[in-house]
């Protein structure tokens, strides 16, 4: 009798618990989720932008420094400022032939004028 009584109480308690389960957040929950998701997405993009702007001045400064060093080391030659800054080698007809003979096979090199 007691067991049966307890069983009935368990069933009643189970029913009470099931009926009392929370089934909703406060109104507008899905809107809050979407807003938060968008904000997170934007903050990611903004973070990427911040990183970009942090790196750009450093990269520009490094490029300028390298260009200055190149120009300084080539200042005695007759290269233009651009060629010197970019450390471009001077190209003439003679050096062009020389470089093609360097890459060409020994046979083809002998056939050159």
């Amino acid at each position: 009798m007691t067991d049966r009584h307890d069983e009935l109480h368990d069933d009643a308690l189970g029913a009470l618990l099931r009926a009392s389960a929370p089934d909703r957040f406060d109104a507008g929950f899905s809107g809050r989720v979407l807003t938060r998701r968008r904000a997170e997405e934007q903050s990611w993009a903004a973070g990427l932008q911040r990183q970009f702007f942090r790196v750009v001045p450093l990269a520009a400064a490094a490029a300028l420094l390298l260009a200055s060093m190149n120009w300084w080391s080539a200042r005695s030659s007759h290269a233009s400022v651009i060629d010197a800054a970019l450390n471009l080698p001077q190209v003439s007809l003679a050096t062009a032939y020389a470089s093609s003979s360097y890459y060409a096979s020994p046979d083809s090199a002998t056939q050159m004028p």
């Binding site: 389960a21 929950f29 809050r32 989720v33």
Partner: peptide, 24 residues
């Protein structure tokens, strides 16, 4: 699936900002 998440979060934390935050 709001109900599933609400039952878990509110059941564990009680109704309030914490549960809503966990739900989101």
């Amino acid at each position: 699936y709001e109900g599933v998440v609400a039952a878990t979060a509110i059941g564990m934390l009680g109704r309030g900002d914490d549960a809503d935050d966990v739900g989101q």
